[in-house]
């Protein structure tokens, strides 16, 4: 279980660019929930993910994992339990290292990075098997540097790397946004398969309303740092794209656009 309690956050406090983003924000995510998050730009979606992962500090409030307060925990320590895939496919992989080297590192997450050989040759078949599941032909390119792969291939690899070891939470930050429609579809299906197969609690930010309604078992809509729609279970299944678009339009009018 992951909870954010009474979160306050203002960017550039005390300057002309002061931007309040969260004012007493609360959210609890139960185990094995797959939450899709939608909302206009500046609504606080990415800030929400950054606060969960510890990439930014909060002004007040607490972040808890299974009841344990991690508000002051360094970001890299939180990643023992968290996997994250970014919008930019380049963020999740090392471009000058080979697929095999990247996977070997990901496979060693949670264990010491000591002076034993970086790649365990006995694990190569396991990597190959996992790559085959992606269906992108990467299983024959183990010794190719990641920099020469396409964006979709890199993103698929990043997704595989972030879920290769057991994690409790998967954070997806518009991870299909930079891909062409066909590849985005492939990555989304892979994501769903991985999340369901491993029962990972997942938060996915997306601008694609079809993905937001079609995947996951809870849908959150954010606006100006507040949750304005929170549908679970049956309500989530019934939420339609038209309904979401309607709310988006209403908000825009209220904002004077």
């Amino acid at each position: 279980m992951l909870s954010l309690e009474h979160i306050y956050k203002t960017y550039n406090r005390g300057t002309v660019n002061e931007t309040p983003i969260f004012d007493d924000f609360n959210l609890t995510i139960e185990d094995e929930e797959f939450v899709t998050v939608v909302g206009s730009n500046g609504s606080g979606k990415t800030s929400l993910l950054n606060i969960i992962c510890g990439s930014i500090d909060v002004d007040a409030g607490s972040t808890l994992i299974n009841g344990v307060d991690i508000t002051r925990m360094d970001d890299f320590k939180r990643y023992r339990k968290i996997g994250r895939v970014y919008q930019n496919p380049a963020m999740g992989t090392c471009s000058e290292m080979t697929i095999l080297e990247n996977l070997s590192m990901a496979d060693n997450k949670g264990k010491p990075f000591n002076l034993t050989p970086g790649t365990d040759k006995r694990r190569i078949d396991f990597y190959r098997e996992n790559l085959r599941h992606l269906g992108l032909g990467l299983e024959d390119k183990l010794n190719v540097t990641v920099g020469s792969l396409s964006g979709g291939q890199r993103q698929a690899l990043a997704l595989l790397m972030s879920t290769l070891t057991p994690i409790e939470f998967l954070i997806l930050d518009e991870h299909t946004a930079a891909l062409d429609p066909k590849t985005a579809e492939t990555i989304m299906e892979l994501t769903d398969k991985l999340v369901r197969g491993k029962g990972i609690t997942t938060v996915m930010v997306t601008h694609n309303l079809r993905y937001a309604t079609g995947y996951g078992n809870r849908l959150i809509m954010m606006h100006e740092g507040k949750i304005i729609l929170d549908n679970k279970g049956d309500d989530k299944c019934k939420t339609s794209i038209e309904e979401l678009l309607g709310i988006f339009n209403r908000i825009s009018i209220e904002c004077g656009n």
Partner: peptide, 13 residues
């Protein structure tokens, strides 16, 4: 190459 990867591997860059 990419410090973000080291962070997501739960190591201090």
């Amino acid at each position: 190459d990419n410090p973000a990867v080291v962070t997501s591997l739960a190591n201090d860059k």
